[in-house]
Amino acid sequence: MRIIETSTKKKYSVEILPVESDDYKNIKKDRYFFNWKTEKEEEVYKLRIIGSNDILGLVSIERIPQEWRLHIRLLSVSKENKGKEKEFDNITGNLIAHIAKIAVREYGELACVSLKPKIQIAKHYIEKYNMNVTGVTLSIEVPEIIDLINKYDKD
């Protein structure tokens, strides 16, 4: 998986790993927008450039096996990767694709990843990640989930 430095268009390989308890010392609301400490008991992943310890994005999920579904609880990029002046592109896409990979690995053709963004930003997720809409829930399933993984899961 790779992210792109917006100023140079240079690509950097990233790794997405489970957050460890020590990481929470450096995960502050002023850089990652939410109080991630409330997610300590959840399944949380961090994205960083290979060889760097700096966390550029975070995602927490809930596994709902009886529905073959992973629900994204919280997702954020780091402050310097927000907006038009962001340093790196594709952080959110890689985080969602990582969760999609876990869902397909676990549930195969029944896999589903869901999230529930605010109405103002739902359109963006629908268009950019080809998500389906059910009420206030957005979801991605087969076949679109396979395309999403293929788009981001590159060496």
């Binding site: 629900h71 919280l74 990029v77 907006g83 529930k116 605010k118 997720y125």
Partner: peptide, 14 residues
């Protein structure tokens, strides 16, 4: 209103 779409999502059920 300009909404920044990519900084994050709080998608937790209440």
């Amino acid at each position: 209103m300009i909404v920044d779409t990519e900084y994050g999502v709080d998608s937790r059920y209440t």
